[in-house]
Amino acid sequence: MNIRLFSYFVTLIIKSRMEYRGAFIIGAVGQITGYAANYLVIWLLLQNFDTINGWSWTEIAFLYSLNILTYAIGASFTYTPMVSLDQTIINGDFDKYLTKPLSPFTYYLANLFNIGYIAHIVISLLVLLWSITQVDMNWTAIKLIYLVLAIISGSFLQAAGLVVIGSLSFIFLRVRYLFEIFFKLKEFIAYPISIYGTLLQMVLTWIIPLAMINYYPSIYLFDDSVLTNKILGVVALVIGPLGFYMSYKLWMYGANKYQGAGG
């Protein structure tokens, strides 16, 4: 599937959603309120304490926004298809994705693209841009390019997490609770991971590398004089696309198994 076809799917999806414009707008307002509340709580907290482990309010806002923004981008493509995959298989609706001259993976993602994350993207991007102007550091062209790449890589990594769990639908009957675990785990990176013990930091860096989404890009941007920050900052750019490719392979493996083992 090429980008033009994918964007045609997106056009149709937007058109469909606009049939229920009122619900869409109320939904967007609801989401923005929800995230605003999360920002507000952290802000209130830092009114008392100034910093969490040396991270100021604006730095935390940057870290937090990077997480939400990359999640919203990744989830636009993968959340709805992956969360509904188990039901799609059980209902027998998955067959339809194997009847077109398209890769079932991209066809499935395109068909269930979710435009509803636009509200997440708007609020997190606004706070991110605001925090960039406030954070105490020198922005250079290289750092801005790095930030763009980090957002892309982080989005891939968030999507990869959802795709991996979705792929398990082909093997297990229901995976809804694994998604809940995933979201609980993601709570760990809402704050700088330096507040946790070494073991947990290692886990979040190398085993379930969620810290690559926002923590390592942030510390690289805030302080690139430390060598390990540089190295991990670069790793963070690579791990997203790589993780997504691996999750894609796993998904295709699952889809093949579906074709062989039946639905």
């Binding site: 093997i171 297990f172 009957l173 229901r174 995976v175 609770y177 694994l178």
Partner: peptide, 10 residues
């Protein structure tokens, strides 16, 4: 002979 749920599936 399946049991449902993630643990059941495991």
């Amino acid at each position: 002979a399946r049991s449902t749920g993630v643990i059941g599936s495991m």
